[in-house]
């Protein structure tokens, strides 16, 4: 009987190990394939050149989409900061009742779950109603909307880690709510906020469906904020569908750069929060 029970346990553990291996191998395999293909397609010209090919009139590199993506994600995340950080600071018991906090949290979670294509459609409707064409500004606003729930939830997690004693000490010394929040809690949570911002940046730079209609696509660098701009994910999508060696290579190179940025951003945000938290009270 015991032997049978041991056998059952072994069987399930074996099955679970197999499943974990499938999960890890398949996901790492996907990234591996793309990194490997992309690495082969990389070159200095691909990376830095803004020139156009004399034959097809297409750009020879992907520098335009790297810069476009940086504008879009950077702008979007900066804009989202203006809403997210105050929002995370105010969703606390000093300002709002427990039930309202829970309700707003659920709303943020639901917003997080709404697919980016819906954000894209909304952004497009907003652009149309303002009689604008797809532009850098449209992409930035859409990405900002998309980043708000992500950044706020991450920042809320960070703030919840601030020790209660600090807050109580501040109130004990006679500080007002605003003084406590802005001078004690915000300062304590600052390293974590950096992590939250980078997390949102990683999401924003990889998002395709949201910028598909709102940021447009352009082979040139945008001269103003009202012009369309290329971005890495859209370059991957377009170029992969195009025939021709150069386009394929550009798609692979863009995938490499995009994965690289996302992985670096998440690695840096991890170490950054460890580094910066040296100076906070534990």
């Amino acid at each position: 009987m015991l032997a049978w029970r041991r056998f059952v346990e072994r069987f399930w553990i074996g099955l679970m190990i197999a499943m974990l291996s499938i999960a890890i191998i398949s996901v790492l395999g996907i990234i591996g394939i793309v990194l490997w293909r992309g690495f082969g397609a990389l070159s200095l010209e691909m990376f830095f050149s803004l020139k156009f090919s004399p034959v097809t009139g297409e750009p020879v590199g992907i520098a335009n989409s790297i810069i476009g993506s940086a504008y879009l994600a950077g702008g979007g995340v900066l804009l989202a900061c203006l809403i997210s950080i105050p929002l995370a600071l105010v969703l606390q018991r000093e300002y709002l009742s427990e039930n309202i906090i829970t309700a707003v949290t659920v709303i943020l979670d639901v917003l997080w779950g709404i697919p980016s294509i819906v954000y894209g459609a909304i952004g497009y409707l907003i652009l149309m109603s303002c009689h604008q064409r797809a532009s850098l500004l449209g992409g930035i606003v859409t990405l900002a909307l998309l980043s708000v729930p992500i950044m706020t939830r991450a920042a809320m997690n960070v703030i919840s880690l601030v020790p209660v004693q600090l807050r109580e000490t501040s109130y004990g010394l006679g500080a007002t709510r605003w003084e406590t929040i802005s001078r004690v809690i915000f300062k304590q949570a600052l390293p974590g906020m950096a992590t939250a911002i980078m997390l949102a940046f990683g999401r924003a730079i990889g998002d395709t469906a949201a910028v598909l209609f709102t940021a447009g696509y352009s082979d040139k660098l945008p001269k103003s904020i009202m012009e369309g701009a290329a971005s890495l994910p859209i370059t991957i999508y377009y170029k992969l569908m195009m025939p021709g060696q150069l386009a394929q290579r550009q798609a692979y190179a863009a995938s490499f750069v995009l994965i690289f940025i996302v992985l670096i951003v998440s690695a840096v945000s991890r170490t950054l929060s460890n580094r910066l938290s040296k100076y906070t009270v534990k």
């Binding site: 996901v27 990234i31 994910p233 798609a251 995009l258 994965i259 998440s266």
Partner: peptide, 12 residues
């Protein structure tokens, strides 16, 4: 891995 953009999965 949860943060890898979907277009990468599509490309793969």
């Amino acid at each position: 891995l949860a943060a890898v953009p979907s277009v990468i999965y599509g490309a793969c």
